[in-house]
Design a protein around this nucleic acid. Structure first.
Lengths: 194, 194
DNA sequence: CCAGCTAGCTAACGCTCATTCGTCTGGCGA
DNA sequence: TCGCCAGACGAATGAGCGTTAGCTAGCTGG
């Protein structure tokens, strides 16, 4: 029984699992090493620092979310269509990338500057993108909602929460959850069931 | 310029603020002491341990949530009425007790046993209470929703998220936010605007 | 005016953590 | 077969943590 080879990716993956479970500050490098059946100093052959692990994980996830969003809404003009696809990919991602979502939401604030601000700017870009879809829809009369900001927050955080309860071996799959949550989102902005 | 007297409550309050900002593991007792303009060991005249601070904060909040829920639904039988009031107090609490909500959601898992399990049981009691209202409403035909569990999660986490963006000096107050989110919740379960 | 208690302080302890250094080994190319 | 090199390791370092002990200033009640 030989162990899997130690690589930069395997270290990142173990860190991702443990950060999601116990938080960045609650996880010791010795625990990451233990999960890989290796002594702690060996990790340094495949990473720069503990902080760099977190930085890499957050950066990958946040840029991925933004890329997902852009490909989902690019080329679409109808606010209903744009919100539908934006929510679909966002909700789906939180079912398929649970650990990443938990770490980004809990531990982005633990990054040192200037990384923290850079990551928060990227997150805000997605936030504003979603909100603009809603304000657009309200302006053109497709949506009926009192405060676009409130609705946008509600929809976003509803999706984020999927990461907290979704189980791979549960009764519903990522696609079904994404569809149902997208329905919730559309009802929130006043669009009837599709 | 004399400083405020050090009490058990003032220590808890400073801990609450810092735990909410940086997380339990990300906060040092020296920082709590610094916020109170006191040296670290002085804290021990007013607390048992750092862990005990977290335990007290979580316990107070979780029992408060459950008490709120019970007084909100007790005596009401109509599922719409019950869900309306349960969501109202739950949403409102997350606007008025932001720090508590953030700490409970992020750091309950950092409690040692048996406290962690005890607190999680209390949280689950609220979760099941809310879900039962929805299953009740579905059974009696007042609600139209595919999965009560999914709807219940979506509503709960939507409310929890209020704690993450609400600002006391913002344009909307706790009552208005609670009312709008309660509307969202009712539309999610298929009840038209009231 | 003094005894005694409350509650702050300095100092120190033991522990854990992230990180570094130098050594050693096992596999690969020549 | 021999030399080389990547990479895992033991040992050590220094910083920071939570916590304890013992001292002391200042207020309180007699």
């Amino acid at each position: 029984m030989t162990r899997a080879p130690l690589t930069g990716e395997s270290v990142l993956d173990a860190a991702l699992t443990l950060f999601a479970e116990r938080g960045y500050h609650g996880t010791a490098l010795s625990e990451i090493a233990g999960a890989l059946d290796v002594r702690t100093p060996s990790l340094y052959n495949h990473m720069r620092s503990k902080h760099d692990l977190l930085r890499t994980l957050v950066e990958r996830t946040v840029t991925g979310v933004l890329a997902d969003f852009r490909t989902a809404v690019d080329g679409r003009t109808d606010p209903i269509d744009r919100l539908h696809h934006a929510t679909l990919v966002y909700a789906r991602r939180h079912a398929t990338h649970r650990r990443e979502a938990i770490v980004v939401n809990r531990d982005t604030g633990s990054l040192d500057e200037p990384h923290r601000s850079a990551m928060q700017d990227l997150r805000r870009a997605h936030e504003h993108g979603l909100r603009e879809i809603i304000t657009d829809g309200v302006r053109t009369g497709r949506f009926a909602v009192d405060s676009p900001a409130l609705a946008s927050f509600a929809i976003r955080e509803m999706c984020v929460s999927i990461a907290r309860w979704f189980r791979d071996d549960g009764p519903v799959g990522p696609d079904q959850v994404a569809r149902e949550y997208t329905e919730f989102a559309l009802t929130i902005v006043g669009v009837g069931r599709v």
